[in-house]
Design a protein around this nucleic acid. Structure first.
Lengths: 135, 135
DNA sequence: TTATTTGCAAAAACTTTGCTGATAA
DNA sequence: TTATCAGCAAAGTTTTTGCAAATAA
């Protein structure tokens, strides 16, 4: 795998991201450094980097795929209003995998736990909206 | 909400399904009873029925959305090879929601736990493939 | 009767891919 | 030098939507 300038910036931008951007969100950020980069390049690199386990593709709900600069498995929380995804600072619960040994003869490989909720920014927005309604 | 013939068949077909079909899979099954039905109608009805909590839209990984005739929350296992989704016969773990109270001021509403693995049919296919290689 | 729903087709949203010129090693 | 990669644009996949005709209640 060659370390092209584009790949370097994509990786750097994802690693520094505090959220878990979609391909398009990351494209917008990378574009500020590389105005000529194309969305296809971002998609291709995210795929390659995830394959190499340098980053991870997040396996959860929501319309679009999201990416995480941290390749270690961990849990996420997703805002049902704006789609934002953050880390949950709790380690993997190993006991969970054994729970699922029973069903239908599946060979269990992994599990994904995702919390859903309202992020601070959307809670704030909700309050403002509510206050407006009262006024 | 009117109980149209289309809606009735869609619901019946989903309730009787042992798997958790995508909109298109369900469309193919419903088509056998109603050859003139359109995919758009299936999508619209699944949306309405999920809104009414008669069914549920499954919020997990994989490319396409899947639907479940059982509106009660429960966990699923997904085959990473063929995408098939089955139920995991284990009740909801209430303790999980409180785990996530810490992060970033999110207001937690729910959680989704998905196991990934290989379904019996794909395990079988894998073996056949392997035997073929050996021969 | 009439508000809701359907079928159809077009569009939207998201992602992948083929090709040609550019480039890292 | 050359296998890999980028940019561009076209195409693929999945889901949503506008509209006129049909229909449940």
């Amino acid at each position: 795998m060659r370390m092209t300038h584009q790949r370097e910036i994509i990786l750097q931008e994802l690693k520094m991201a505090k959220d878990h951007p979609t391909a398009d969100e990351l494209f917008q950020r990378v574009r500020k450094h590389l105005p000529k980069i194309s969305l296809g390049t971002v998609y291709r690199n995210l795929e390659i980097l995830a394959e190499a386990q340098t980053i991870q593709k997040i396996e959860v709900g929501g319309r679009q795929k999201r990416f995480d600069g941290n390749p270690m498995p961990h849990y996420h929380v997703r805002c049902v209003q704006c789609g934002r995804v953050d880390d949950v600072p709790v380690g993997r619960i190993k006991a969970l995998d054994s729970m699922a040994l029973k069903p239908h003869g599946y060979k269990i490989l992994d599990h994904h736990l995702e919390f859903t909720g309202i992020c601070p920014a959307c809670q704030e927005k909700g309050l403002l909206q509510h206050n407006k309604t009262l006024t």
